[in-house]
Amino acid sequence: MHVFETLRGRTRLRLRATPGDLAFEGLSTFIALAVVGLLVLITVILYLAAAESIRTYGLGFLSGSVWDSVSQRFGAAPFIYGMLVTSALALLLGVPVSLGIAIFLSELSPAWLRIPLTFIVELLAAVPSVVYGLWGIFILGPAMRVYIEPGVQAVLGFLPLFQGHPIGSDVFTAGVILAIMIIPTISAVSREALLAVPDSQREAALSLGATRWETTRLGVLRYARAGIFGAAILGLGRAVGETMAVTMTIGNRAAFFGSLFEPGQTIASQIASRWLDAVPPLELGALIQLGLVLMLVSLFINLFARLMVGRFLRVGEGAE
């Protein structure tokens, strides 16, 4: 006997359960729940492995500014700082570009260009991060050193942020690489958000005599701002955890930096560049504690972003 049941718009076919069905249901439930178990397990094991470092440094670990294996002092502050600065830079550069792409794709693009362009932008996300890293070392880094950084310095050199001798293998380069890497995420999600804006909003703006850009600003961007914000946070989540490309371009110096043209280190790049040489048990424990911090930060960012985007897209659908 077949019973159709509509559950949240999806039709489910219910069959009378046979032993095979029950086994299959049990197995897939188990696998699905195992993912949750895995997450818990990873956290617990990271915590145990970092236990000694946590006991030794406690919360002071987060504010400690020295990483010295000789004197056995380990602090996370320079890496948290490096992570915040590179991610902020990535958002600063990546969000406007991504929004431009999203606006073009949802509001302006002729129909024939829309699908191929969307595809290509999403393809950017498929480039392995080590390839971005290589490109960063051999192409972007030198270009930054010779052209871009001196150029930026000529205009904004009065700010401490842009002082010093450009080296190309520095925080600025890492930020630019990150910006490129988060563009596909942010532009794809913001495009979804813009497409979810009902046409009645565009018409409202148009009928007041708005130009195309004014219509986009007034009727579309404002309406979708929660979704766009969520998209940016999702990109932030990716930037915070990105390891390979950053490790290859940031210059790897475990200290605070005053200028973007100095080398630095993020949490992820510090772990990646130190773990081979880390002196057990304390330095290794400290690295694992760094990992724990990174995991929690990125978990929260992603959770928050998904809540934002999810809520917006649901509301958007309801409005039309």
Binding site: Q201, A204, L206, S207, G209, L218
Partner: peptide, 14 residues
Amino acid sequence: RRRIGMVFQKPNPF
């Protein structure tokens, strides 16, 4: 459109 205003079927405030 600035000289000829319009009101739509479904209310569409911002």
